[in-house]
Design a protein around this nucleic acid. Structure first.
Lengths: 153, 153
DNA sequence: CCGTTCTGCCGAACAACATTCGGTGCGACG
DNA sequence: CGTCGCACCGAATGTTGTTCGGCAGAACGG
């Protein structure tokens, strides 16, 4: 993970669909070198994939929420089972396993408030390991797909 | 946004770096048609960009947290200012503007616990509009970059 | 200090690709 | 029934991905 790798990663974070030749030119190496580096980054697991960022409303997901969930008992079996369950639900776009008061935070998106409510009541609250959950609506979601490097790194 | 558009979007969510020809073959149209559709999806803002998904530890971001923040007064000026401030910090990878008890939830990632703590104390808590915040460490973060379509959609 | 080995990079070659554009079929509309 | 407009197609062309042989410099050992 030298400076060249970082530069390639940065470019691919910024725009994953630009040509390998463009990236090579920007980072200052031959296209063949850049391609080999990228292949190795993928192989090493540094690059996990390339994904299009889609407007949620275009996917009929105009309403989003964060749901804090507490489960009991706090055993590995229960945690893994709930994690897998949540991750498998189509309305769920992310699962955070947490330390602190809440055991999970689930990022959920639905077509409208009615369907969000139905999801919470019909799917989530069915699970017997849940001893409590709190839902907070998301007004706005600003994601940083191209984060600036950390100061002291 | 017909069935063909959805299929193209699905493919680009799954793998944004596959060739236009491959996508065209999978969705069953000519490459030129597929390219034109993709161009329009971008132009309409449905596709917001293409980004590489990078392992956080490779970016020196091994520790992640969700920080719930309350600010006062709850005016547009204060909310917009804090939102811009948070979004500009390099440790911040996402900002959620919320309804409910918390006004913001901030997704933060740092190199280690020390730097996370330093960030919270030196950067975040400096802001005078903050009247309270609560930090929860993230043990695990499962994101779904290729969500299954919603049932009733 | 020299020879060997190894590693990473380069540039050329070729197959695959993106992109453009004129043509065509089909449904809508008058 | 004729005409218009729209979406798609396929061929053409310049560009790109990908492979591979070779080369230079570092690392190592004698």
């Amino acid at each position: 993970m030298d400076e060249l790798d970082s530069a390639i990663v940065r470019e691919l974070q910024r725009d994953a669909r630009q040509s390998n030749r463009d990236i090579a030119r920007k980072v200052g190496v031959a296209p063949s070198t850049c391609l080999e580096r990228t292949r190795l980054l993928r192989e090493r697991g540094v690059i996990r994939g390339y994904h299009a960022d889609i407007t949620p409303s275009a996917l009929n997901r105009g309403v989003q929420a964060l749901v804090s969930v507490q489960v009991r008992p706090l055993s590995r079996a229960v945690i893994d089972a709930f994690k897998a369950f949540a991750h498998g639900l189509p309305e769920v776009t992310a699962v955070f396993v947490m330390a602190g008061n809440d055991d999970f935070v689930i990022h959920v998106s639905a077509q409208d408030n009615d369907r969000l409510h139905a999801f919470l009541v019909d799917r989530l609250s069915q699970r017997k390991e849940i001893v409590g959950f709190r839902t907070s609506i998301i007004f706005q979601h600003l994601a940083k797909h191209d984060p600036a490097p950390l100061p002291g790194a």
